[in-house]
Amino acid sequence: MKPAPFQYHAANSAADAAQLLGDLGDDAKLISGGQSLAPMLAMRLVRFDHLVDISRVADLRGIDRNNGTLIVQAATPDVLVERSDVVVASVPLLTKVTPLIGHFQIRNRGTIGGSIAHADPAAEYPAVAVALGAQMECLSVRGTRMIDAADYFVGIWSTSMESDELLKAIHFPVWSGRVGFGVAEFARRHGDFAIAGAVAAVELDSGNVISRCSIAMFGVSGQPERALSAESHLLGSSVGEISPEEVGRLAIADVESPSDDANMPATYRMSVAASTVATAWTNALTEAHHG
């Protein structure tokens, strides 16, 4: 379990990393925390002639609140997201999901941008990005562009970024007012990728009518799944009008191609997903009420 030979490049800045990606082309891969890439390299499941290390790049780390947006630089370790006062005050859903990622040793090394760019369909951060409508700031020698989370995840371990682009930062919209957030997942063991999970966000008006809501599931298919029809049913309804179980049923009805394999049949995975949606939704509502 030793990787094949590769050339190591330590990037000095985000621009430097983009330049290296531009120069080296498809033979190069970014590495930050290495929590997914390093084992794949060690088992020679993947190989690259060049690794561009962005873990020490100062302008790729950090968390900033800019009016209605929380900007998290891509190479910020999970543990800093988990413990950030700015994050909990701005996008508390990130604070809630982070402890579910692996174990603390993994969160010390793993980065939020690594998780999102790796695009594992069972990962928590991509689902949060999709649920909240985050914008992905992507950088290349050709310039910067923003990709909406809804367009970013295109399949298992696959995004709409070009091979010369790096994920520079994630821009999360800040929800304010009578808002609440919830997460629920089921994994074989604590810290494992979930068999299915869900995140939910809700905003209530003064009359306890749902004025804004979002639900996304993870682990259920090739990418995070937004539960759009469930959301449209909920929008404008009063709290309690639609039961959490019904929300779960509506949510899974939106999943067109659920993951299906011999060990985890789709029917089972979807019933777990519905249950996690119900729990996440209930938690979000409870928080909006009392928060």
Partner: peptide, 13 residues
């Protein structure tokens, strides 16, 4: 053939 697939109980289980 890896600990991703061969699950061992940990302290939390």
């Amino acid at each position: 053939t890896t600990f991703v697939d061969y699950l061992l109980p940990t302290a939390t289980e």
